[in-house]
Design a protein around this nucleic acid. Structure first.
Length: 358
DNA sequence: AAGACGGACAACCGCCCGCGA
DNA sequence: GTCGCGGGCGGTTGTCCGTCT
């Protein structure tokens, strides 16, 4: 059974909005508001438009204080950083850029920013890796490389950007921070302490956690959330270690059993696929649980924590597109596979580091 | 000069989710 | 518990316009 359409498709106008339509919509919303019902709105004001179309027009174009075009370098960097962290969550990214709409940012990313990054990488790659003859040969490679190059390009972009900033880089870069209230500051502090504790001999995170919320029920929730954040960081660390080629990780799978084991710096274990799946599933639940908890109304600008979801997307993409099918039969998702891939592509990643300074 | 092409942006589509009946 | 509805979102398509051949 298909879903009923939101409006009578035959009787609604589509395509570009006329100035009169804009004027009608704007005038009505400015005086009456949306009335909480976009679907009914066009009938009220005599517009032959779908309610959703009206909503989009208002949000993306007519709303006051909307900026179009003219993205600054700072905005570019914020978009890139957030894209790294949370992927294509355009509405969340837009929330960090006052006056920008998700649609605008999405278009800007797809048409310019992405090309800007990839273009620089390609240029740099060509200059650094190949002689003139080799360049000619590459240029003549033609169609058969198109698909793999496209997939590789996505991987390169994703991994290079991730290698520049770990999942918590947003919190480590004050220039990118939204204004925070005291509770949010505490949360950030806890996350930073958490990262530090990974690299020190003291794995305990409870004192910081207790600072976050005095509520006992919330503490437990915070502990779970932060432990998962810690594991996220460790996974990231392993990815980065393997990218750097300096990792000493062994390929045997030693599962961290407790939060403190997960945080133990000497634990050089790798993660099984099942473990990662489980972790990523937990992330979604715990992050959203955390965000929907009592804390959430106090953390209106902390939506970026939903980014924990993106780790799953990234992993799914990895497992689907990058980890080759030869290793797919293995239940162990160890870093030696990554090592193999990254060693062969390391030059490309270095190129990215050069090209990313925007 | 005119058609082809590509980039930029606006708008649409369809899915998902939350909420209320 | 389920169903239907509206809102929100991300991906895709359509349209316009400038540039190239």
């Amino acid at each position: 059974m298909g879903r009923a359409p939101c409006c009578d498709k035959a009787n609604v106008k589509k395509g570009p909005w006329a100035p009169e339509e804009d004027a009608k919509l704007k005038a009505y919303i400015e005086t009456h508001g949306t009335g909480g019902n976009w679907i009914a709105l066009p009938q009220k004001i005599g517009l032959k438009r779908c309610g959703k179309s009206c909503r989009l027009r208002w949000l993306n174009y007519l709303r006051p204080n909307i900026k179009h075009g003219g993205f600054t370098e700072e905005e570019d960097n914020i978009i890139c950083s957030l894209y790294i962290s949370i992927g294509s969550r355009w509405s969340i990214i837009a929330a960090q850029l006052p006056g920008r709409t998700d649609n605008d940012i999405k278009n800007y990313w797809n048409t310019r920013l992405k090309k800007k990054l990839l273009g620089r990488r390609k240029q740099s790659q060509m200059n650094n890796r190949f002689s003139g003859d080799q360049k000619d040969q590459l240029a003549n490679c033609g169609e058969e490389n198109t698909l793999s190059n496209s997939a590789l390009e996505r991987l390169q972009l994703h991994m290079q950007l991730q290698s520049l900033q770990n999942p918590f880089s947003f919190y480590n870069n004050p220039a990118l921070w939204p204004k925070l209230n005291p509770l949010q500051e505490k949360m950030l502090q806890a996350l930073q302490n958490l990262n530090q504790s990974q690299n020190s001999s003291n794995p305990s995170i409870l004192p910081q956690v207790n600072n976050i919320s005095p509520n006992a029920a919330d503490v437990q929730q915070n502990v779970e959330f932060l432990n998962q954040a810690a594991m996220s960081a460790r996974i990231q660390q392993e990815l980065q270690s393997s990218m750097s080629g300096n990792n000493q990780l062994n390929s045997s799978s030693v599962e961290p059993k407790t939060s403190s084991e997960m945080l133990e710096p000497n634990n050089t274990s790798t993660f099984t696929q099942a473990e990662i799946d489980n972790f990523l599933n937990m992330n979604s639940k715990t992050a959203s649980s955390f965000l929907s908890s009592e804390n959430h109304h106090q953390l209106p600008e902390f939506d970026s924590l939903k980014e924990m979801d993106s780790a799953r997307d990234a992993m799914m993409w990895w497992s689907n597109n990058d980890i080759d099918t030869n290793s797919a039969s293995s239940s162990s998702w160890d870093s030696t596979t990554l090592m193999h891939h990254h060693q062969s592509d390391q030059g490309i990643y270095q190129d990215y580091a050069i090209g990313y300074n925007m």
